[in-house]
Design a protein around this nucleic acid. Structure first.
Lengths: 230, 230
DNA sequence: CTATTGAGAGAGCACTGCTCTTGCTTTGGT
DNA sequence: ACCAAAGCAAGAGCAGTGCTCTCTCAATAG
């Protein structure tokens, strides 16, 4: 139970939130590289050393922001799916793709934080893996619904990939045909590639009409996971 | 002509190279975030201010490393294509994909520098766009050879994407069917997505047998660009 | 009511990118 | 061959960073 125990505990929660808010502001304004503990503290009217009572290091603050970013994009994806629950699965798929892209365009630095080069340490802390899975799980949900009691429309896997696909299915996509699981994982990575290229400037002087291009590509990815064309 | 004009000019070239080498060493060891001008200077036995005679700022040093990285991965891709010039185009395509991935696994921090979040300014300087195109041009070359005097094996583009695909073709992929150009651009972005997911830890606890998975995905991308299965 | 815990403040360390000034050496024109 | 100009290294210094340590004071718990 999280009953409020006293003024102290309540204050701690509020200050922690204020720090994260200000840090997120600086992140959005200048990027992760220029996020400075001292500047956050200054803006909040406290001295820098006081901030260490709330986050033991700069990396921990960043990790907190990473988790929030995962949750934010995950929520956007889930909302898109909920909005299209009754539409054909292909439309639902494309809607989720577009939701992720829109979120990325609206929060470029937060996107870079989670899908760009990992800034803090090398392996992501344990706390991030839950929120990190939300978008992927949304895609899984779309496909699960689409494949409920329907035949497979995908060619069989090559022999060397099949065991891996079966394992992945058992691990996190129970119920999906292994062909679909493998295609889904690839499609999800590829989607992020498309968004990253657009966001990180790789499409400058290459792709101009990005909305159209992306929507088409998202449709191709839907096709790759075996979703019917309608 | 780059005739050596004198001891001074020669020294400048050598020192510039030494700085880049040491910087690349630190980049490979610790990542772009921890690359420090002072540490580079220290390691080279010079004082930090002297380094500014060669690179006007840290970002300029990083830009030089970015260009080198683009050239490095571009050379790897071109070599893979040269090695498979007489093979069926699908094999050539897959070989180039694998060359890019291998380069990325061997130079993770340099890869992150060019395909991860852009570290220095936001828009890449003019000097980078030439080297940055080498890998893409390699893929274009593979497809150009494959489509020389051969029919199209791709469905027609939707009406809204067609003009964009035609423009892209005229801009940098002269001779390719517009359907192929559009598919290629998407495939290239998607390939980077696959590699980034693997390199940045997004495949941890998800994909185990990464060689197999990647090779299969590369084959799917070849298929998406219309290359025949053999 | 007292002992313990948590929080803010301040000083300080080691480091960073970058600038400016001061000498010295190589260069190019006369 | 000489001499001004340009290129270069060194040193000091500024403003900023992450982080640690100590000190003081207020809130909590027994």
């Amino acid at each position: 139970m999280s009953t409020v125990r006293g003024a102290r505990e309540r204050a701690r929660i509020e200050v922690t939130a204020a720090i994260k808010d200000e840090a997120r502001r600086q992140l959005a304004a200048e990027g992760a590289a220029k996020l400075s503990l001292r500047a956050v503290a200054r803006e909040l009217g406290m001295v820098s050393s006081a901030l260490y009572r709330y986050f033991p290091s700069r990396d921990d603050l960043l990790t907190a922001l990473i988790i929030d970013a995962y949750d934010s994009v995950g929520a956007a994806a889930e909302a898109a799916r909920a909005r299209t629950e009754d539409a054909p699965p292909r439309q639902s798929w494309i809607a989720v793709c577009q939701a992720v892209r829109s979120w990325a365009l609206a929060h470029p630095h937060e996107y870079a934080l989670i899908y760009g080069s990992p800034v803090p340490g090398y392996s992501a802390p344990q706390d991030t893996i839950g929120p990190a899975a939300r978008v992927g799980n949304t895609f899984i949900a779309v496909l699960r619904a689409a494949y409920a009691g329907r035949g497979l429309a995908l060619p069989p896997l090559p022999a060397d990939l099949r065991p891996e696909a079966v394992r992945m299915t058992e691990d996190f996509a129970e119920g999906l045909p292994p062909e679909v699981t493998a295609a889904l994982v690839a499609a999800w990575a590829q989607l992020v590639g498309l968004i990253s290229f657009e966001l990180f400037g790789q499409f400058n002087r290459v792709v101009e009409d990005r909305d159209t291009f992306f929507t088409h590509a998202a449709g191709q990815l839907a096709h790759a996971t075996g979703l019917p064309a309608i």
